[in-house]
Computed example of a mutant assay.
Amino acid sequence: MSTIDTSTPERLTGETGDSSFNDKLREAQSRGGQLDQEGIDAYKEYRGPYLDGKPPLAESDHKWEEKDIANVETEWLSSSGHRLMLWDDLLLVTMKNGDQVLVHAGVNPRLHEVAKEKLDAGDVAGPPAWTEKELSEEHENWLGQREAGGFEVVTSAEQIPELGDLRFIEDGYMDMSAAVYHPGNGFQLTVDDNGAYGANDTALFTTADGSKYAVSKEVSPEAYKKVKELAETRDKIENKIEDDGYKVMSGRDDIPVVTDGTKVETLAPGVLAVETPRKGKFIVIESVTPEHFANLSGVQAEKQQGAVDKAFEDRDLPPAKETDLMLAETSEKKDGKAKTVGEALLRQPQGGL
């Protein structure tokens, strides 16, 4: 008596819900795994609507090198900010130049194999670190939406810059990307304590190079605390602008001529308050006017050194440059002037004079 085989064939990587395509995939597997063009076209036709709006499918003629693979993921980020598992064992491969492709095990078996090995071995980062944390639905959705909008999610306090490194929007400057989350002029930094711009206990900021970052207290309490402190300092500086008659120095402004009456005060790393007898009061921000900032930082250092020397003089002590070894003069000269020890050391190879 004959028996009927009712066993289910072992599932192949890349199978879909279409039995006709799956038969083509099994046939390709017996030949080494590579679908012929008819099979590739069949997959693209069957999954056409699903593939729309995603990175392109890496076909058999896609050029790549293993060293160029930067990351591999099994999920993709939708425009709504939701991370969704990819169908059909697809992999999302990101190259070092930022290009992304979807890789199917039958359409490009070699790239799929190499990418899967890298992911399983931990040779690539995989999904963003913040997605591994247990977050509230509110924060998870908020961060996903920000990531879909081009923001990088901050995972440690070390990623928070100094205030002077933030992007500054000058008065009257239109920035539609900033308007989404920054209601006015000033440093592009918003801390949300009441849900007005997203989820509570979140923050957004932009650095001078245009990079955008999202902060969640649930992801990194330390980063959130640090960005709140930045915001408090920012508020004090903006109050100086609004209430004390200061204006932000722009690249169009001349560097002030410094006199004995010039006052230079550090408000935060990368931010100076400068008051001149003739030109008025300015806030000088390193990311806005780096040349002005460097010049006036030097003036401040000189004024501080002068204050130290005056204190030494009042106590019948020699000036600091005569007691600081690095400022002591050497026999080596430049432009007719003796070099200091510090200047001479800078010119020497490692190992000393």
Rank of each mutant, 00 (worst) to 15 (best):
V114E: 10
V258P: 03
G352R: 15
P161K: 12
S216Q: 03
I4F: 07
I69A: 03
W130M: 00
G17R: 11
E265R: 14
Y197H: 13
Q188K: 12
P318A: 13
S136M: 02
L166P: 07
I283C: 09
T330G: 04
P319Q: 06
K116N: 12
V101I: 08
P277V: 09
T323R: 14
Y181T: 12
D309E: 12
D244M: 01
V284L: 08
E229S: 10
G186R: 13
V215M: 07
G186S: 09
P319S: 09
L35S: 06
E147M: 11
A157Q: 13
L135T: 00
P318F: 03
P318N: 06
Y173Q: 15
L267S: 14
P128C: 02
L267C: 03
A344T: 09
N185C: 00
D309W: 06
K236V: 02
A294E: 13
G164P: 02
V341D: 01
D123H: 12
V153T: 15
E313S: 13
A301W: 01
D23V: 12
Q188F: 06
W87S: 11
G149L: 06
E147A: 14
E134R: 00
S297W: 10
Q34D: 08
H104F: 09
P269G: 07
V341R: 09
K225R: 14
K236D: 12
F293D: 06
Y213L: 08
A148G: 13
Q100K: 15
L51P: 04
L296S: 07
A273Q: 05
L345W: 11
E59V: 12
L51E: 05
